[in-house]
């Protein structure tokens, strides 16, 4: 079942067209990374999902229900973490979660249980200080706690890690990894390593268009570039082997950097193993031989020119 269905949505602010004919699906229990440069339209898309912005045309459905601008009943399925969540500084985390739970009409016992669970999940249990003294990272964690309080079917996070230091980022990613067992997670980011760590699907947004989407594994497969990297031990005449390799029909390009060879295969069958066989026949002293995996970063840079 699709949790999010976006159909041919357009949105512009004044003259500037921010989202152009965007259609995408997010399946249940996915961890969907929403990638794009700053200004690509990620936040705009998320705000439309929440009914905070009105699409100029097109339709958005959450759990099969249409999102209505200004009064989005569909928000009951959603937990939302804004990029920089702001809280009432005069409340304690417990009071704040209490307010959130009461607004959504959680029963008292359930609310108490969930509050304790959530504060434990984000590591703020036993913290009875007022929120005004909290650090960025603590606020972000409290933001996740309030978003997950109602056990939403969909958790939307807008750049949850961008403003944090490495430790804070790791904490947030760990919490999201735990959350993904129970809910569908959609999060926008421009930090590609975060996507590789926890996402199973990605959508890459470029200038308001969906440039690419799919499962991370599929994308990596289709963008596999058949590149081999070889490290030689020092003292070996690297120019000689380069010359020899260049003549082989199964190699299209070869470059070197110090003792490292960067070999682009021509795409012929068994090209990789032919390279290996040739190297061993020539008794080239190998330190490392690796078939390169395309990283999301390479895919991203290629797609987003």
């Amino acid at each position: 079942m699709s949790i999010i269905e976006i159909d041919q949505v357009n949105k512009s602010f004044g003259e500037v067209s921010v989202i152009k004919d965007l259609s995408l699906r997010v399946e249940e229990h996915a961890v969907y990374g929403f990638l794009g440069k700053n200004g690509a339209g990620k936040t705009t898309t998320m705000k439309m999902l929440l009914g905070f912005l009105k699409p100029d045309s097109g339709e958005i459905k959450i759990c099969g229900e249409k999102v209505i601008y200004g009064n989005a009943r569909t928000n009951r399925y959603i937990g939302y973490l804004p990029d920089v969540p702001e809280f009432y500084g005069y409340m304690t985390p417990k009071e704040y979660l209490g307010l959130c739970g009461e607004i959504t009409g959680l029963k008292k016992e359930v609310l108490q249980r969930r509050t304790v669970e959530m504060l434990q999940l984000v590591g703020l249990e036993g913290n009875n200080r007022r929120i005004r003294g909290f650090s960025r990272g603590m606020k972000q964690r409290l933001g996740i706690a309030q978003a997950l309080l109602n056990e939403p079917k969909l958790l939307i996070c807008d750049e949850p890690t961008s403003a944090l230091d490495p430790v804070g980022r790791k904490e947030i990613l760990d919490i999201l990894s735990i959350a993904k067992g129970k809910t569908t997670v959609v999060f926008s980011t421009h930090i590609l390593s975060d996507v590789e760590r926890i996402c199973d699907s990605v959508g890459i947004l470029d200038q308001g268009r969906l440039a690419l989407q799919g499962k991370v594994a599929d994308i990596k497969n289709s963008y596999r570039k058949d590149v081999i990297e070889v490290d030689l031990s020092s003292g070996y005449p690297i120019d000689r082997i380069m010359k020899l390799l260049k003549e082989k029909p199964y190699i299209s390009e070869i470059t070197s950097n110090d003792l490292r060879l960067h070999i682009q295969l021509s795409g012929q069958e068994k090209a990789a193993s032919q390279v290996l066989r040739f190297l061993s026949e020539e008794e080239v002293p190998l330190l490392r031989y690796e078939i390169m995996e395309p990283s999301i970063e390479n895919v991203f840079l290629e797609v987003v020119q």
Partner: peptide, 15 residues
């Protein structure tokens, strides 16, 4: 201007 209403409105509280 602070943005404290965003979380609350996202929870479906009518404006």
């Amino acid at each position: 201007s602070k943005g404290t209403l965003i979380n609350i409105l996202a929870k479906g509280l009518p404006r």
